[in-house]
Design a protein around this nucleic acid. Sequence first.
DNA 1: CTTTTGTTTAACAATTTAGTTAAAAATGAT
DNA 2: ATCATTTTTAACTAAATTGTTAAACAAAAG
Lengths: 207, 207
Amino acid sequence: MIESKEKPTEELILDAAMKVFTRKGFAAARMEEIAKEAGINRALLHYYHRDKQTMFNRIFESRFKEFFKGLFVIFESDNISLFEKIKRMVDHEISTLMKHPDLARFIITEIAQSPDLLIEYGKKLGINPRVFIEAFEKQIAKEVDAGLIRPIEGKQLLINIMSLCIYPFVAKPVIQTMMSLNENNFYDMAEQRKIEVSEFIINAIKK
Amino acid sequence: MIESKEKPTEELILDAAMKVFTRKGFAAARMEEIAKEAGINRALLHYYHRDKQTMFNRIFESRFKEFFKGLFVIFESDNISLFEKIKRMVDHEISTLMKHPDLARFIITEIAQSPDLLIEYGKKLGINPRVFIEAFEKQIAKEVDAGLIRPIEGKQLLINIMSLCIYPFVAKPVIQTMMSLNENNFYDMAEQRKIEVSEFIINAIKK
DNA sequence: CTTTTGTTTAACAATTTAGTTAAAAATGAT
DNA sequence: ATCATTTTTAACTAAATTGTTAAACAAAAG
């Protein structure tokens, strides 16, 4: 049997839920649509998963992790030059978002509606951006003092990096329409940005 | 009577609807919440406005205009240097979003859910980004050819500008929590970005 | 073959929400 | 004071949606 092992239904449902929640958000997502996306019916949805809110929580947790993990890992690694770190952050972030183009918009819009989610799931998953941010700010201050880069606040630089990496995906439908980019064009553009953005940032801050 | 002339109820309702739709999106917005926000009851809502969808359309149109107008105006103005144009674009965009911090997220998430909105309202309001974008690309190509700036694609530069201006507002709740910024701190940061971003971009592209 | 497990069907209850209506009350102008 | 307009109250309808249930059915396992 060269049959591909079929996924258990419970996971099919979670995959479907992820898709629907991600593209519609909690409020606009319909259980019916999730069932259809999973190729089953509504009754079976509840056979495996208590209710909409519970399903959403599971999905949100895993997507939250996907979005926030990784970014920080890179910066913690010491003995790498700032420019190299930036290159890796940018590459990592854009690569992640190319695999999950709706991830950032999903996380941001859900957090915008209930800001507590960020604190709640941050705690639950042991993700503490502040530690990372402070380390980043310290390193930037050091480099500025040493005259290695132009004066810039760590916070601002960090926001710039995030913006350049994340925004194109958040605004993907807008950008695609405005610039007449089909899926392939968009991904080519995103792929190109891995280098473009790194260079842009480095040129912006180097002396 | 030093009484301030009170707004007519119909406008009070529209103001309230704008707030609620903007922070919740169409799907999660509740007529009850709009009524409460306007300080009236649900019946009066329908006395002045047909239904939720009609109200939403009016709100969306005006916010759409707010978001897309203005940006383009600046670029059309000729006989200004590229750097000066960028400065003005950045200043204009950040100023607009400081006045309407939820505007970008609202427009982007609604368009993400129904991409047709961008085409539909673009036509309706005579907003044609492509003309503007092509002009921008042409000017960048010219400047690159003339050796006045580093080589960069117009599309990429434009996306960079938008990203740096818009993302901080789209991700405002995330950034505020991650960086422990209260409202005042956030606005100070945004205000600072008017210059920070301009310089960042110009340093990134100048030779 | 029988039993267990997974799945569908279809009907249903409960809840939420949008939207309507008629009557009463409040407001403001003449 | 009277009249028209605005607003509230409260009850109601209609629709959409979530979640439940029981019975039938299919598939897989023993």
